[in-house]
Design a protein around this nucleic acid. Structure first.
Lengths: 134, 134
DNA sequence: CATATTGAGTCTTTTTCGAGAGCATGAAAC
DNA sequence: GTTTCATGCTCTCGAAAAAGACTCAATATG
């Protein structure tokens, strides 16, 4: 299961993609419409901004909007940014790899199965973008 | 990513499957060989016992062993028992479903993609057993 | 320039997860 | 039946996640 934070991030991005023709969207609006705790959402959007996915404007008429074309924001990218590894085990993660203590990965049955799972997930998450969940 | 608890559960089951011909295995032995904190492992094995997957014997010559044929213990079953939902979102979970507030699942793009991911995972996890990761 | 609007930053609280300590319980061996 | 071995149970502690309160900073508008 994804962390709450990541679930919220996806929902916020989906909402922003739906509203992208309307100009900047208020944090408060996303919070209300998608039922996300306001201050928690602030942090999430800020992270997405620092990662170059979103941008924001302060003051009247301000809010959040895409810095990057949503059709080029892959779900895998968002997931790794907010949640971390996509793989189920550290020893099968591509971006957050950690060696298994006391386990020879070449001959580990668990490793083999978890690689399969990871590849199945990546096949979807590295192809689908925020535009696809609009 | 799986919780530590679930990762440990899989590793312990893998080890037990490898040693299944040797009779009961000590918690301490699994803990040492698979580098799992002893008391944490105790809880995990107990849960697996209460679920009918493992059984245990106290006293000398005691330890843990399979109550069920490891070839019939599906990875999905273990994962759901220790970790909870396999799906990435509550609203696409089969066993731990929770309705999405303010989101019509029929027309939610996120829901659609996450269902795909879930099905890809289940295709593997409901087919593979503990015997397969031996 | 004054003010209303809205995002940004800091601090605190609550809950869950990971981990460990200590005692209780049950089984085998002598 | 007492000792020894190994699991079972309860409590506690610290770290991280989830959530909220309050203050600071930037910008549009008149």
């Amino acid at each position: 299961m994804l962390s709450k934070k990541t679930q919220y991030a996806f929902k916020a991005l989906m909402y922003l993609a739906q509203q992208k023709e309307e100009g900047p969207v208020l944090i408060a609006e996303i919070s209300k419409k998608k039922k996300i705790p306001l201050k928690f959402l602030e942090n999430i959007l800020l992270e997405l901004k620092k990662a170059g996915i979103l941008d924001s404007k302060k003051g009247k008429g301000g809010g959040y909007f895409f810095a990057k074309d949503p059709a080029k924001v892959y779900l895998a990218e968002v997931l790794r940014l907010i949640d971390g590894p996509i793989a189920l085990l550290p020893c099968v993660s591509l971006h957050f790899y950690e060696k298994c203590k006391n386990c020879d990965e070449k001959h580990c049955g668990l490793n083999r199965v978890m690689c399969e799972v990871r590849d199945a997930n990546l096949a979807i998450l590295e192809k689908k973008t925020v535009e696809d969940i609009r």
